[in-house]
């Protein structure tokens, strides 16, 4: 969901898609890498419907939760805690080589290696 409409009515909540790494369509956090806006294919491959736990971020700069979730550079909004699925390999490669962004999956695999 875009930043301008972070509220989703309960009836639509089941249609939520969590962006695997960023947010979906036109996501201010990731648009420049993933170019989700307007591209249904890209959205399909870069977002996930399977997620768990929802964070609403009011103040990304001061929130520890944001820091811990590595969301501190992001815009305020709603984020997922756990997202099943990972980005397709080609997109990961692009991200890493072109944008020097290392991809941290949020599906729970990270904890084993990182913390």
């Amino acid at each position: 969901m875009s930043t301008s409409a972070n509220f989703v009515t309960p009836g639509q909540q089941r249609h939520l898609r969590a962006c695997m790494r960023f947010r979906d369509e036109g996501c201010p956090n990731c648009e420049e890498f993933l170019h989700l806006a307007g591209s249904q294919d890209q959205i399909e491959s870069c977002t996930s419907q399977v997620f768990e736990g929802v964070i609403t971020l009011a103040n990304p700069a001061r929130s520890w939760i944001a820091k811990w979730q590595r969301l501190d550079g992001y815009v305020g909004g709603v984020y997922a805690i756990k997202v099943s699925g990972q980005l397709p390999d080609e997109i990961r490669t692009t991200l890493e080589e072109e944008y020097r962004i290392s991809y941290i999956p949020r599906d729970g695999t990270e904890t084993e290696t990182d913390s």
Partner: peptide, 18 residues
Amino acid sequence: SARGFGDASIVPKRLLLP
């Protein structure tokens, strides 16, 4: 801001502890 991703990804979680 995007750089933030790269930077953040490197900071180990233990340094992020509250």
